[in-house]
Computed example of a mutant assay.
Amino acid sequence: MTDESASQRHTAHELLATVRDLTHQVRVAQRGTWFPLLVFALITLAAIPVYRYGPYVDLFDTCRTRGAQRVCSGENPVELGYWTVALVLAYAAIAGFYVRRSRRRGVGTPVRPYVIVGAALAVLMATGSIWLVFHPLVPVPADPFTPDPVGPEAGPVALLVYGLASPLVAIGLGLLVLAWVERHRALLVYGLGYLAISAIQGSRVITSPSLWYFLPQLLVPAVVLLLGAAGFALFRPAAEAHR
């Protein structure tokens, strides 16, 4: 009787171990981490000509002109519109990638929460940016043509809020949701690192007169995303890579 009970417990442990192993294999087979990172890197790089050559539409009446000088304290609706549309289209492409992949492999991925949250973050990013235009955390100076229009009143909390309202941070928050969907610890660590970099980049105050002042804000996150896409594609399990 004792031997029979021990045998049953041993069999139960083996079955549990087998189920855990199969669950892990299914989760690995579901992962397609490299593709979202690549898509986000591409739309970040594509934003460069929009920032450089896109006209500033004074939709929110934040621009002031004096002679040949023009200072605008609000978000450019052209850039804001680009990011909102680009992010929504990116999540649509990611959803299509996962659906086709699931049909080909016969293993489904619960990507719907990620796509829904990602699209919602894109809308919230745009809404938050517009709200900050009409409710600025940093007082707009009476003379916007001063050398330092932000001044010492822009505290770290205000800069952090402006950083969190950036589209690059919205991408980072979406990556954390993807890490949860894919049960991917490496992506969680990567997502937290990317989120920190994006928040720092988005909260920086740049007073350079160059028309390319924004390049570091876009190139640094884009390079991080490209390296992440290459890394996750290169180091994925061999069984996944050959399917």
Rank of each mutant, 00 (worst) to 15 (best):
residue 241 A to H: 15
residue 23 T to M: 12
residue 138 V to C: 03
residue 170 A to M: 04
residue 105 R to C: 02
residue 177 V to N: 07
residue 140 V to R: 02
residue 129 S to M: 05
residue 143 D to N: 05
residue 65 T to W: 01
residue 183 R to N: 14
residue 24 H to V: 13
residue 164 L to M: 12
residue 52 R to Q: 12
residue 184 H to F: 00
residue 143 D to M: 02
residue 16 L to Y: 12
residue 215 L to H: 03
residue 223 V to M: 03
residue 184 H to Y: 01
residue 153 E to F: 01
residue 49 P to T: 07
residue 97 F to Y: 15
residue 50 V to C: 05
residue 38 L to D: 11
residue 103 R to K: 13
residue 71 V to R: 03
residue 213 Y to S: 10
residue 122 A to F: 04
residue 26 V to K: 14
residue 75 E to R: 01
residue 213 Y to A: 14
residue 83 W to Y: 15
residue 210 S to Y: 02
residue 3 D to F: 03
residue 115 V to W: 04
residue 30 Q to M: 05
residue 53 Y to C: 00
residue 17 A to D: 15
residue 109 T to D: 07
residue 78 V to N: 01
residue 129 S to E: 13
residue 47 A to V: 02
residue 202 G to E: 09
residue 30 Q to H: 01
residue 32 G to R: 14
residue 59 L to C: 03
residue 124 L to A: 14
residue 20 R to H: 11
residue 158 A to H: 03
residue 174 G to D: 01
residue 190 Y to M: 04
residue 181 V to Y: 08
residue 171 I to M: 12
residue 21 D to P: 00
residue 72 C to S: 01
residue 150 V to M: 11
residue 228 G to V: 07
residue 22 L to F: 06
residue 218 L to F: 04
residue 194 Y to G: 03
residue 61 D to Y: 01
residue 47 A to T: 08
residue 39 V to M: 09
residue 80 L to M: 12
residue 80 L to I: 09
residue 18 T to S: 14
residue 161 V to T: 09
residue 56 Y to I: 00
residue 157 V to L: 15
residue 94 I to N: 08
residue 226 L to S: 07
residue 65 T to F: 02
residue 242 H to I: 05
residue 82 Y to Q: 05
residue 44 T to R: 00
residue 101 R to D: 13
residue 5 S to L: 15
residue 50 V to Y: 06
residue 185 R to E: 09
residue 122 A to W: 06
residue 187 L to K: 06
residue 110 P to I: 02
residue 90 A to I: 02
residue 218 L to I: 02
residue 4 E to D: 14
residue 130 I to P: 00
residue 102 S to A: 15
residue 9 R to D: 15
residue 198 S to W: 00
residue 169 V to K: 08
residue 114 Y to V: 08
residue 91 Y to H: 15
residue 172 G to H: 05
residue 36 P to A: 14
residue 143 D to Q: 02
residue 201 Q to D: 11
residue 234 L to E: 05
residue 176 L to T: 08
residue 215 L to S: 10
residue 95 A to Q: 14
residue 17 A to Y: 06
residue 123 V to D: 10
residue 116 I to T: 12
residue 131 W to I: 08
residue 80 L to P: 02
residue 166 S to I: 03
residue 198 S to I: 01
residue 189 V to G: 07
residue 27 R to W: 07
residue 97 F to H: 14
residue 207 T to I: 10
residue 48 I to S: 06
residue 199 A to Q: 06
residue 27 R to C: 03
residue 211 L to G: 09
residue 220 V to S: 09
residue 84 T to K: 06
residue 123 V to M: 08
residue 182 E to Q: 11
residue 240 E to Q: 13
residue 207 T to N: 12
residue 60 F to G: 00
residue 95 A to V: 05
residue 149 P to F: 11
residue 95 A to W: 13
residue 39 V to C: 00
residue 46 A to Y: 06
residue 193 G to S: 10
residue 232 F to Y: 07
residue 118 G to Q: 04
residue 46 A to M: 14
residue 3 D to R: 06
residue 179 A to Y: 08
residue 169 V to G: 01
residue 47 A to C: 06
residue 201 Q to V: 06
residue 141 P to R: 00
residue 237 P to I: 15
residue 134 F to D: 05
residue 225 L to F: 08
residue 156 P to G: 14
residue 55 P to V: 00
residue 198 S to R: 00
residue 4 E to I: 09
